[in-house]
């Protein structure tokens, strides 16, 4: 029996996308960074989803101000567990290392709990920090990204990965593009022609 996939609003684009999308945003301006994160979280809350945002660049206060300005009682929703806001370095680099398995476990747990708690769905947006190149396990970033796509097949957690073009070199960015099936380009979500399916990609690096 074929599973029905629900279309959801991502916030930063008008076109609906199926839940469980793994999308990459390569940005070079502050506005792109902020707009994408805030709108994505807001649309998720408005859609009854449980949301999480991981960033070192945007403060929790700024995020809450935006949400409250758009009718979301931020503190209350945080207490309810509707919203989770954390710093990238704290979530991704626990013990100063990057462990894809732990991260995938967290995402799985987050999604499953959400579903169990009655949320329509769950979504996560995270901005990868350039410090990834320095921490132990950082070289496994693309493997992790690819495995996220694999995870979404069973846990259709919608995930947006933000990469600052000013912080990552061009070759890395193109490699990142290979592990994201969709890209946000000029405000539109497009299928990524560089995308390599997880099985193939994981096989190529194994």
């Amino acid at each position: 029996m074929k599973k029905l996939t629900r279309n959801i609003a991502l916030g930063f684009t008008d076109q609906p996308e199926p839940e469980g999308t793994h999308l990459c945003l390569i940005f070079s301006s502050e506005k792109e960074r902020t707009d994408c994160l805030l709108k994505f979280l807001l649309s998720g809350l408005k859609g009854g989803e449980r949301v999480a945002g991981f960033t070192d660049e945007i403060s929790e206060k700024e995020i809450c101000s935006y949400l409250e300005a758009n009718g979301i009682a931020c503190d209350e929703r945080k207490q309810n567990g509707d919203i989770t806001i954390s710093r990238t370095s704290e979530v991704y680099f626990e013990n100063d290392s990057f462990d894809p398995a732990r991260m995938l476990g967290l995402l799985t747990q987050f999604y499953n709990e959400s579903r169990e708690q009655g949320y329509e769905s769950a979504r996560v947006i995270g901005e990868m920090a350039p410090r990834i190149a320095e921490v132990q396990g950082g070289e496994r970033l693309l493997e992790y990204e690819s495995r996220v796509t694999l995870l979404q097949r069973t846990c259709p957690l919608t995930a947006v990965c933000q990469y600052d073009a000013n912080q990552f070199d061009g070759a890395t960015i193109l490699e990142v593009m290979k592990v994201h099936p969709k890209m946000l380009v000029n405000g539109s979500v497009v299928n990524n022609p560089f995308y390599i399916e997880p099985e193939e990609y994981l096989n190529s690096i194994s």
């Binding site: 960015i173 000029n186 560089f194």
Partner: peptide
């Protein structure tokens, strides 16, 4: 697919801040 990759590269390179970044991105693509 390859034409699409080149087109996407067209769209992406303008976001990259430096010539080095553009060139490495392009080479990789």
């Amino acid at each position: 697919e390859k034409i699409g990759q080149i087109a996407l590269m067209h769209s992406m390179v303008s976001q990259l801040p430096t010539a080095d970044s553009i060139l490495s991105f392009s080479i990789q693509g």
